[in-house]
Amino acid sequence: MTEPHEAAPEAAHLAGLDAAVSRCHACPRLVAWREEAGRTRRRSFADEEYWARPVPGFGPDDASLLLVGLAPAAHGGNRTGRMFTGDRSGDVLVAALHAVGLASQPTSERLDDGLRLHGVRFTAPVHCAPPDNRPTPAERDTCRPWLVRELQLLRPTLRAVVALGAFGWQALFPALAAAGWTVPRPRPAFGHGARVVLEPAGDGSPLTLFGCYHVSQQNTFTGRLTPAMLRGVLAEAWQAASPRS
């Protein structure tokens, strides 16, 4: 079995990286959980065939804005095979992206629904659905080479990143450092609306990192994260990511 730290650096482009991610079996607990979810299924999806594999990133290979979540949902991305697709978190996020002009449609229901992202890519620090939405630190670290390589491949065009939640925020810093940006010390604290500019270590462009509450049901149902709050962060991040005239 090829480990992520061996396979990820070999990916010459994002399509190759995505294909390699989807074949990963590095974390036994996550492999067992994602496959069990695909076998037992939620009642409302009982007739559907689950993806039940690692879920790669999604979006154009020249994206200037990257959205980083936590991990695929057991009956969302783990079912459909696409990040933020087929669950309420995806509904909220894609509706907001469409409202600010960054998605071709306001819904994200299935792999073949025609959704296109404009200058934006989705990814996560952990590519398999974890039990209780809680990856272990070891699972996060095992998966990190995929994120590092994704950042490296996006580096020519990437200008801004939105971390959706504290987990993504914390997981990003070692990956960003490995991908060629200078991380401040002490590391900046997560918060909704947080904004940090990371300078390149060597050649390249600065990167602006934004914090945003995760689009989980816990946050959106309680009003901790409203559609207006989400649109505000996305619009600000897109402004930072947009090419200067």
Results as ranks from 00 to 15, higher is better:
Leu154Trp: 02
Val196Met: 10
Leu151Ile: 04
Leu151Pro: 11
Arg195Ile: 10
Ala166Cys: 13
Val161Met: 13
Leu147Trp: 07
Pro186Val: 04
Trp146Tyr: 15
Val161Lys: 10
Val161Gln: 12
Gln152Gly: 00
Ala178Cys: 03
Arg155His: 02
Val162Ser: 14
Leu158Ile: 04
Val162His: 13
Leu158Thr: 09
Leu158Gln: 06
Val148Met: 05
Ala179Phe: 13
Gly168Phe: 14
Ala160Lys: 02
Ala177Val: 01
Ala171Cys: 15
Trp181Gly: 08
Phe173Asn: 01
Leu154Ala: 08
Gln170Pro: 04
Gly193Tyr: 15
Thr157Lys: 03
Gln170Thr: 11
Ala160Asp: 01
Pro145Glu: 11
Pro188Phe: 03
Leu154Ser: 00
Ala194Met: 11
Ala179Cys: 08
Val183Trp: 00
Leu154Asp: 02
Phe190Asn: 12
Pro174His: 04
Arg187Asn: 03
Ala189Gly: 05
Ala194Glu: 13
Val197Ser: 09
Pro188Ala: 12
Val162Lys: 10
Leu172Phe: 08
Pro145Asp: 06
Gly168Lys: 08
Trp181Met: 08
Gly168Asn: 13
Val162Tyr: 08
Leu154Ile: 05
Gln152Pro: 00
Trp146Gln: 05
Val162Arg: 14
Ala160Thr: 04
Arg185Asn: 12
Phe167Gly: 14
Ala171Ser: 13
Gly165Pro: 03
Val183Lys: 01
Val196Arg: 11
Leu153Ala: 00
Ala179His: 11
Gly191Asp: 13
Ala194Asp: 06
Leu154His: 02
Pro174Asp: 02
Val183Asp: 03
Pro186Cys: 09
Ala194Thr: 13
Ala178Asp: 09
Leu172Ile: 04
Arg159Phe: 06
Ala175Val: 01
Val148Lys: 14
Gly165Val: 06
Ala175Pro: 02
Ala194Asn: 11
Arg195Ser: 09
Leu153Asp: 01
Pro188Gly: 09
Ala160Cys: 06
Pro184Gly: 11
Ala189Tyr: 03
Leu176Met: 09
Gly180Ser: 04
Val162Asn: 15
Arg159Ser: 11
Arg195Gly: 07
Leu164Thr: 06
Arg149Val: 01
Trp146Phe: 13
Leu151Lys: 07
Pro186Gly: 08
Phe190Ala: 13
Phe167Glu: 14
Pro188Val: 15
Trp169Glu: 12
Gln170Asn: 10
Thr157Asn: 09
Arg149Tyr: 01
Val197Glu: 12
Arg155Ile: 01
Pro145Ala: 02
Arg195Pro: 07
Phe190Gln: 13
His192Ser: 09
Leu172Trp: 04
Pro186Arg: 03
Trp181His: 15
Trp146Arg: 08
Ala194Tyr: 06
Trp181Gln: 13
Phe173Leu: 03
Ala194Ile: 06
